[in-house]
Computed example of a mutant assay.
Amino acid sequence: MNASANNLPLKQKMTSSGFTLIELMVTIAVLAIIVSIAAPNISTQLANQRVKSTAAIFENALKEAKVESVIRRQPLEFSFDNSKQSILIKSKNAGGSSPIESYTYNSKSIIKASKTSITFFPSKRAEAVTYTICDSEKSSIATQVIVTAVANITTVAGGSC
């Protein structure tokens, strides 16, 4: 009734002692092939996620600037700086400009536009501009954040980096 490994014959103990070196090498080779196929897809997905994240931060900052200009009843300047990866909202009153809010975005994200700053007015107007958000890895899909003259803010996939 006691069927332990100690009671087995010597020949049977030797044949069932584990994996062979060839079996382990084949398994590692298959895993290496799978990883080499999956790695480029993972890096592209990470780049796309960085673009989406930066676009969301950018869109939220634009919407905050729009709402704050109406609430404060004064024009607000929205600007970004790619070298510092920062977004700044500041007031444009006669006594100078004071910062209201600042945001940072991923260092691998690149924002392209014809202007680096626009003004939101309390009359729910803004300067029309299209921002294109890309990643430093060229394999990512660009996203555009569009601000119209009536301060509508939309995000669409597309654009070129």
Rank of each mutant, 00 (worst) to 15 (best):
P122R: 00
Q144Y: 09
S117R: 06
S140N: 10
P40G: 09
I153P: 00
A94D: 10
K11L: 14
A32I: 05
A32G: 11
I34K: 06
G158A: 13
S117V: 07
Y131D: 05
L10S: 09
E127S: 10
A29P: 12
N6T: 10
S4L: 13
N93L: 14
S43W: 11
N48G: 06
I146H: 01
F78V: 02
K108H: 15
A56M: 02
L76A: 04
K124I: 08
S107W: 08
K112S: 15
F120L: 05
P40W: 09
Q49I: 08
F121Q: 05
A39S: 14
G158R: 11
L21E: 05
A142F: 12
R73C: 08
I57Y: 01
S98N: 10
S107K: 13
K115P: 04
S17P: 06
K90F: 08
V129K: 07
V51I: 07
T119L: 06
S53V: 03
V51P: 03
S98C: 06
G159N: 10
A149N: 13
A149Q: 12
T132Y: 09
L24D: 04
T132N: 11
E59K: 02
R73V: 12
A61V: 01
L62T: 00
A55P: 00
S4T: 15
N82F: 13
P122A: 00
V147E: 02
L24K: 03
V70I: 10
N6G: 13
V129L: 11
S139W: 09
V70P: 01
C134R: 10
S97V: 09
I37H: 05
L88A: 03
S91M: 02
C134G: 12
P9M: 07
S69P: 06
M14Q: 11
Q12Y: 04
E77P: 09
F80Q: 02
K138D: 14
S123E: 07
